[in-house]
Design a protein around this nucleic acid. Structure first.
Length: 246
DNA sequence: GCATTAACACGTA
DNA sequence: TACGTGTTAATGC
């Protein structure tokens, strides 16, 4: 997605397993892909699932570290990024609630290839590598979910290349928002995306003031409604195609 | 011209 | 109180 420079991160050390806890029933109920599993599989996932709360700036996983978990965002907002040789971070995508990530790394049992960092206080779940492979080996429903996930995300990264070539700030904001509102990749978002204009600026690569102006334009176009601490989508197709062809 | 940073007042959680 | 928003002014490419 767009390149974005983020402010210096406070001493982010990575998440220790000792801080994790089991998921409660409400959190399990919010994980959509569990519904595609059988009883036995669901029970093993529930037993294996770990949950941590991460603070702003904290790293969920760091590039080069050995793979430990397949992660999901239960609440909050993360960003996926890498550092360039010059030390400038480039942001690939934001990860809002309902998003699961890291399956490519888990599949290959390779070190993480991206940094995943919390933009705000967030709740992150993870299942172990062995459980992930165990599910792949026996659950058609899980395979279907993972395949669909990979397919949808491929579409997102193609769209991200388009966004990169768009220079108009309003259009960049519109399409980046549309990506974050993806109902299959981020089913926890719903109609209201909790994101500050500052955070959106980090993801899109624009100043907060310019994001504010873009949001006002998109609101005037009846595509979104700007709310305190978030954005409500009114016309997802319109956002995705902004500015509308005529 | 247009986006950025800085700064401020104001409203909300 | 702390944070997020909306706005203006000065600065830079």
């Amino acid at each position: 997605m767009p390149t974005a420079v983020l402010p210096p991160t406070s001493g982010a050390q990575g998440v220790r397993v000792s801080r994790s806890r089991a998921a409660h029933a409400g959190e399990l109920a919010g994980i959509g892909w569990l519904g595609g599993l059988g009883v036995v599989e669901r029970e093993r996932v529930a037993a294996d699932l770990r949950v941590v709360t991460v603070q702003p700036g904290e790293l969920v996983c760091r590039i080069g570290r050995p793979v430990t978990y397949w992660f999901g965002v239960l609440d909050g907002l993360l960003k996926m990024s890498n550092d360039t040789a010059l030390g400038m971070p480039i942001t690939f995508t934001g990860l809002p609630p309902g998003g699961w990530f890291g399956e490519g790394t888990v599949l290959k049992r390779e070190p993480y290839r991206y940094n995943i960092q919390a933009l705000r206080k967030s709740v992150v779940a993870g299942i172990g590598v062995e459980t992930f492979h165990w599910l792949l080996d026996r659950s058609i429903g899980f395979n279907r979910f993972v395949m669909n996930q990979l397919n949808e995300r491929l579409g997102q990264f193609i769209a991200a290349r388009e966004i990169d070539r768009i220079t108009q700030p309003d259009a960049r904001v519109a399409r980046s928002l549309a990506a974050l509102f993806h109902p299959l990749l981020y089913p926890g978002v719903g109609d209201l995306l909790r994101i500050t204009q500052q955070e959106l600026g980090y993801l899109v690569g624009l100043s907060r003031q310019r994001v504010n102006e873009a949001l006002a334009a998109l609101g005037a176009a009846r595509l979104i409604r700007v709310e305190y601490g978030g954005v409500r989508v009114l016309d997802l197709a319109g956002l995705r195609g902004y500015p509308a062809a005529r």
